[in-house]
Design a protein around this nucleic acid. Structure first.
Length: 362
DNA sequence: AATTTGCGCAACCGCGCTCGG
DNA sequence: TCCGAGCGCGGTTGCGCAAAT
């Protein structure tokens, strides 16, 4: 299992690529594209397996690769992303144009890890080493470096599996007492207070504050949406059948809590616009919502299907937002939108964990 | 000068997922 | 529904080079 049939064939070369092989592969793909990788070596006249060709192209021959050392900005971004994504190198690489997952992985293992340790930071948890050691001692567990092989077995990443409000929410299936919280039920609690027009001439969003002071939702409707009537309708008309659009229409997001929900809403608007998604919504103030209610909400099938690709908004810069969302924001418009300049670090971490938890469990 | 050690990086390996027959 | 091929990802290996002994 796992080994390609082509690898069993005889006379396939392995090891370093020669300049002649590189030239053959480069010429072939430049002229024809790669198409089916398994057929590339034969068509290109190479004694390699398709997998090897793919790897060589992606990591070395691709014309859009950036060569040379990582800049300080790139290094900072990698550390930031790793704190959120863990060892998801391909996702991290997606935020660094011209860099490959392999390159970043090597850079992390050979350089950044060392630097973080020297600075007294645990590269796995991104917490101070002293704190990590204390936690491990208290929990009677070996240091993080020693539990590496067990990480794969966890449904949630290590930082999510720790204690804290978010983890309490995720790990509270027994807490579904009397609360029945369908999307439509939650939505009826809202009183929509503001209508904001975005800078993209036509997109607008509804910023809301919920009437019970517990959970906030923002709905952003963008140009060419067929459902613009939703934002002008009273809150009570939102229902599970009209409000959650098809998954294709929806870009789910989890935003950092903000003092000003209007600002948060604008951020989402920007994300959605640049991703051409007609809708987005965010969840706010999770910490103020009864855990059972959140759990019910997450458990609800209609919502969970929209939570499969979470991303976190509320970053303090376009670079960060791109890092979190995977979407390239337009810098000018982003600034025009009044992106929040700061967010509670505690909340930030909790919501990052929540996003990861959704991605891992739903 | 010869050998050993350490490091960075390219490439491989194994696994899981998706998709089409 | 099952199965196999293809693909992508993350972990690991091992080569080549430079520094240290």
């Amino acid at each position: 299992m796992g080994r390609h049939s082509c690898c069993y064939k005889q006379k396939l070369r392995k090891g370093l690529w020669s300049p002649e092989e590189d030239e053959k592969l480069l010429n072939y793909i430049t002229k024809n594209g790669h198409g089916c990788w398994s057929s590339v070596p034969k068509l290109a006249g190479l004694q390699r397996c398709g997998k090897s060709c793919r790897l060589r192209w992606i990591n070395y021959l691709r014309p859009d690769l950036k060569r040379g050392a990582f800049s300080q900005q790139e290094e900072n971004l990698i550390i930031e992303l790793h704190s959120v994504l863990g060892n998801r190198w391909s996702q991290i690489a997606a935020q660094l144009p011209g860099r490959t997952d392999n390159e970043i992985k090597n850079f992390w293992n050979s350089c950044i890890k060392k630097k973080l340790k020297q600075s007294g930071i645990d590269p796995t948890t991104h917490k101070p080493l002293s704190e990590v050691l204390t936690e491990n001692k208290n929990e009677n567990k070996p240091p993080s470096a020693m539990v590496k092989s067990n990480e794969k077995k966890l449904l949630l990443p290590p930082q999510v599996a720790s204690s804290g409000p978010v983890n309490d929410i995720i790990a509270a299936p027994e807490s579904s007492n009397n609360v029945s919280c369908k999307p439509s039920d939650v939505l009826r609690h809202f009183s929509f207070q503001q209508l904001n027009y975005g800078p993209d001439m036509g997109s607008f969003s509804v910023a809301n504050q919920n009437s019970c002071g517990q959970l906030g939702f923002d709905f952003n409707v963008l140009p060419n949406s067929t459902s613009t009537e939703l934002v002008t309708a009273p809150a009570s008309s939102f229902s599970a059948t009209t409000m959650p659009p098809t998954p294709a229409q929806v870009r789910p997001s989890i935003s950092l809590p903000s003092e000003n929900s209007c600002v948060t809403s604008s951020c989402n608007s920007a994300f959605s616009y640049y991703d051409n998604a007609p809708f987005s919504w965010d969840f706010g103030n999770f910490d103020k919502l009864p855990q059972a209610q959140v759990h019910s909400l997450v458990e609800d099938a209609k919502w969970s299907e929209y939570l499969q690709i979470p991303f976190v908004t509320g970053s303090s810069s376009p670079e960060q937002s791109q890092a979190y969302s995977g979407i390239k924001p337009d810098t000018v418009n982003f600034q025009t939108l009044g992106f929040p300049q700061s967010a509670s670090n505690t909340h930030s971490k909790d919501f990052q964990r929540l996003a990861l938890a959704f991605g891992q469990t739903l």
